[in-house]
Design a protein around this nucleic acid. Structure first.
Lengths: 176, 176
DNA sequence: CCGATCTATATCGGACCAATATAGACGGAC
DNA sequence: GTCCGTCTATATTGGTCCGATATAGATCGG
């Protein structure tokens, strides 16, 4: 599942610029299980254009650089659906936070608390995004992914809050 | 949090070969939130050796290629702990399965069921690994990460099983 | 009116992964 | 008993991907 395929998928839901594709990952709470950087999105769109998977129209605006709006072609749509019929690559996940917590016993207590609070904040923000979503998801897929995201982030936030509360107790005991 | 830092962390818990480091990610149920490939582990270990962060001893075995056992040095240990004091990079996550499910309404029903069942199987395997763990984790960090992994995978498996059950109902209705 | 933030495209160096090559050991099938 | 698959173990390569950075006008709050 490379960035080219992901771009095709996004474009199959509607036209977009490279910038807008990136924004979908960051903001829209679209979901937090797929992302890509500009450094791979722009080259991907160029190559997809060469391959005839997408078409571009340059909307020249007054006193602004052109907006390059990409649309998926029939070829692209077929190629995308075809790639979904083949076995999917496995998830890749790297969480520096979780890894760092493996070594909490080697770190100063305030640093551990700081790491926890930072991560709790980030997770709560993502969860809030997923909760404030429009009540009626567009497609069945949207409904599934929204529910999935909520389930995962609720579990994460619950666990972290609980652990953080335990930690407070320990700190109080240690201070006595 | 690059692969070099991750290798340092692993080695701070005990000596290992490149092969063993990789195995920890795959098997040990060590945890499913950090991984790395051979293609990045071996170069990382070479460079760490050059930099004096780790040392190597080649255990030459009879009729086998040398086992290169890596040990972390004091310099490496200090550098690693120091990197944990700086702000941590954010999680990166890419789940082809979740992305593909966004388009379930465009796919044949059997394919959707197949994707779901495959992913449920994988998640159950990981959860089983996390549950059969030795009852007494080594460090506080181990305890935290084990609990975190269990919480996340329990939520995932629950949600997927529930969704899959719903789907069965739909399919039955559609067949009538 | 100044700095910050936003829209928008783009590139580069370095990091990273998947696939592949090599090679002897070991265990089970037949 | 020998063949096949799997396991230990190191290593490289091609290509993908990310983070940082550059550019530049718009817009907006203080």
């Amino acid at each position: 599942m490379d960035v080219r395929t992901i771009c095709l998928g996004i474009l199959s839901r509607g036209d977009a610029t490279g910038y807008e594709i990136k924004k979908l990952f960051d903001e829209d709470g679209y979901q937090h299980f797929v992302e890509a950087s500009f450094g791979s999105i722009y080259p991907a769109l160029s190559r997809l254009t060469q391959e005839g998977m997408v078409s571009v129209r340059a909307e020249s605006q007054e006193k602004r650089p052109d907006r390059k709006v990409y649309s998926i072609t029939d070829t692209g749509r077929r190629a995308f659906l075809n790639s979904l019929m083949k076995p999917l690559p496995e998830d890749r996940h790297r969480s520096p936070f979780v890894f760092a917590m493996l070594f909490s016993h080697l770190l100063p207590h305030p640093r551990v608390v700081e790491m926890l609070d930072t991560y709790i904040g980030q997770s709560e923000t993502k969860l809030a995004q997923l909760m404030e979503q429009k009540p009626q998801p567009q497609t069945e897929g949207d409904r599934f992914v929204l529910g999935y995201g909520r389930a995962v982030y609720i579990a994460i936030v619950n666990y972290l809050r609980h652990y953080r509360a335990e930690l407070k107790g320990d700190a109080a005991e240690a201070a006595e």
